[in-house]
Design a binder for these strands. Sequence first.
DNA 1: TTGTAGGCGTTATCAC
DNA 2: GTGATAACGCCTACAA
Lengths: 342, 342
Amino acid sequence: MSNKEITIKDVAKLAECSPTTVSRVINNSDHPVSKDTAEKVEAAIEKLNFSPNRIAQGLKSDRSNIIGVIVHDICDSYFAQMVKGIEEFISGHEYIVNIYNTSRSVEKELHAFNLLKANRADAIVLAGGALMNKEYEQKMRSMIDQLKNQNTLVLGITPHPFDVKNIILGNDKAIEVITDKVIEYGHHKIAYIDGPKKLYTSYLRKKGFKRSLEKNGIALDENLIFEGDFSFDGGRKAALKISKKMDLVTAIVAANDSTALGAMWELNNQNIKVPEQISVVGIDNLPEAKYSYPSLTTIEIPIYQLGTNIGEYLLNRLNNECDYQFKDIKTKLIMRDSLKKI
Amino acid sequence: MSNKEITIKDVAKLAECSPTTVSRVINNSDHPVSKDTAEKVEAAIEKLNFSPNRIAQGLKSDRSNIIGVIVHDICDSYFAQMVKGIEEFISGHEYIVNIYNTSRSVEKELHAFNLLKANRADAIVLAGGALMNKEYEQKMRSMIDQLKNQNTLVLGITPHPFDVKNIILGNDKAIEVITDKVIEYGHHKIAYIDGPKKLYTSYLRKKGFKRSLEKNGIALDENLIFEGDFSFDGGRKAALKISKKMDLVTAIVAANDSTALGAMWELNNQNIKVPEQISVVGIDNLPEAKYSYPSLTTIEIPIYQLGTNIGEYLLNRLNNECDYQFKDIKTKLIMRDSLKKI
DNA sequence: TTGTAGGCGTTATCAC
DNA sequence: GTGATAACGCCTACAA
């Protein structure tokens, strides 16, 4: 066998028919093909191990079958689960999932978009959250216009300030609910560990925290807002600072689970007992939240399911089911051991 | 602006030249183009936000710029890191990284290969390890032949029984080294938690364990080999069994870190103290191994770096640097708190 | 220095 | 039921 690609023509020759007929068989076309010929074609395909060149198909149909997913970091459990959900749904349907880690860098994000545009991606999922940056917004807006002209479907997870289909997860509401719970448990001196400043999601989550305080008549103490970056390490660093102000704080609300887990680790490291001396809660319900010491009270955001729902939505939309609606996910309070009544 | 794709022809028209000239400018062709024309072309490209259709380019050049990566589960820290390494290196160079989670299912693995074949992937990284399964081997062998004819580069991480470039990580040696250490620390009653039976990597790692025992004159007790599956949960389940045989065991060697972390969690849950009552070691040095209770003694396999090396290798090979050699990674013993002398 | 023509593998259109 | 032909967007001879 030579090093030359096997094409529809080779199949046609072997099956003693025209390429057109082969194409009709491959695509289960409506156009009639005699049973006899069809069988010969099938046999030839089998024999030659032929599979149609999707690049050529793509050129013809103006479809790449590529779905781009842009995340902050695939090593972050949160994104890994979402991507897995998308991938498992999507690649059962002949699409390709193409990921990018952008570390929330404007430059990398734009680079990813350029590549996806050049590859004529059928859809793009903006999973990493919106960056709060003028240059980013402006360039993205232009890019998204261009993608529209290319018929690329763009999906934003959490609100994005562009004209895309935005999936709202209720980040602010989730934090509000869990903060309410913390307060219900008797806590009034509550520290908050923030997410990365440049992320709109951080802004939303903090808003939920503030809303709960206000609703419950607790004054916001700006000194109890600590910097974080949605990471374990960020949680650790914040907790180290908090550990020096233990008289001011009886509970910590973290902007996500990774932060909360890092905080608990550091508190333990500083010989501060959770939840006896201080309560800690998070958001996301990462798989590891169940296995921390102590186990973490949090809000479940069913991220894997979010991924499969995204996959299902994209698939339907790409098949021109224009009235298919996104299936919203439901968040849920998960009570574990890291929150204690006082 | 209409909904029609912008092509090289549109650019040519605007720049008042031929498509060929535009093509030459785009590709920095050797063929001379006057500065004047080049500038007009650049301006037109800018104005129209044109980017060449990589699908069409691919059809012409028989290159898809797609690199497929097949993993067991992207949620597994081990694979997430490798994929990140590959992606970060690769997508800086105009390639697309396309991932598949196959859960070590023969069917899914073959499905992924079929898709990658149809999409004429330029390279495929078999990162999930080789399955020990006759049907799988046979079908894969045939598939890999077909891919060869398509000029697809296939890379196996850990040995695969196919004619592909296999990257050897020294799994067996790593386990041997750490088991040696455990024995050096005075342990003779050592349990082993295995990886998934169907994985060749498991077989290799267990071999390393056995070799160390033998070398050190310790008889292998088959009752101290426990089933696992490279997961946290698998480690938990095994540890639950081990916790009932505490008189027979003073140390556990786990086939990977996830397993070790799950085992430690369960031991703690059973009120068995690590390392006071039992030592535990793993392999991989996952990021979370540093933050477990106690911190995990393990062998570092620099997986992220493995990923970037894979990316670099692929890039060079795809650019026909036929003598470029894979940069091997180095493993290293990481002593932490979960191993204690007796 | 520029342009024309043909072809990559597939499919839609039209004819038979 | 079947097949020839043109076209998708780009690039590589080859001409001029």
